[in-house]
Design a protein around this nucleic acid. Sequence first.
DNA 1: GATGAAATTTGGGGTGA
DNA 2: TCACCCCAAATTTCATC
Lengths: 154, 154
Amino acid sequence: MQGAQLDEIDVKLVKLLARDSRRSIRELARELGMAGSTIHARLHKLVENGVIKRFTVLPDYEALGYSVTAVILFQVEGGKILDAGEYIAKDPRVIAVYDITGDYDLAVIAKFRSVNDLDSFVKKVNKLPYIRRSVTSLALRAIKEDFTSPLTSG
Amino acid sequence: MQGAQLDEIDVKLVKLLARDSRRSIRELARELGMAGSTIHARLHKLVENGVIKRFTVLPDYEALGYSVTAVILFQVEGGKILDAGEYIAKDPRVIAVYDITGDYDLAVIAKFRSVNDLDSFVKKVNKLPYIRRSVTSLALRAIKEDFTSPLTSG
DNA sequence: GATGAAATTTGGGGTGA
DNA sequence: TCACCCCAAATTTCATC
């Protein structure tokens, strides 16, 4: 994916956009001390190279009815970890799946409309033949949830 | 924050923007079968009510040099969970902190530039007097990481 | 790569229906 | 809420350096 080496301007541009992706190219150009057309071209490349995967919006899941967040760990039979991970990843309610070291093999974070919804998800996944064990932790509260934090707090 | 009840159009609008927040109001209006000025007003309210928290960009953390992701669980002395959570949340490398049920009290997801960087983070947090125990799992691979998934896959 | 100027769209506000 | 118009500002393209 990356032949693209990013210089300091590129990184600054991504950070500015992570903070607020609606800022005009003119404004960004002014702040970065370059011409608008240059920033426009750089932005285009960043998107093309996949450094910026998507322009999106940070939603309030509570307001949208997703009041339940869960962290679920799975033990999977050796050799089937990626298969299981990819199966789990297909579910739209899953926002993250990590292949992890330690006692468990997969860490999953997902958003649900209700505890019943969570329950049906866990049961669905546990039906897979190569899932050995799972632990479900209900997130009583999301103290922080900001996937841009490393870029926007720095 | 939520006296705002969202109708179907509002939800659709958020979903469309979660998929691509650069689409013009004209285009969104056409797709939703409403006038541009109406969509403009609705969008304004969604931002004002905090249903849309921020316009942002989905970055490729690998490309930006954050090659290490970790899932860390903490056991915290009763009564100090929120304090610990808020302390941890301040670190820019932390993208999520959940107050969870189960054997551990906090689940943390964070991004690091190196394993050393991760190590120093865990040591820093473990110095807190009310942290009883922690388990660090290195994410060998992010099989999925898309915090808009419930909105964009549905 | 970067630039400034030109051509095309868009945002945002207002009006009356 | 809508359809319509307006204008200032933005995006995007392109010839040129």
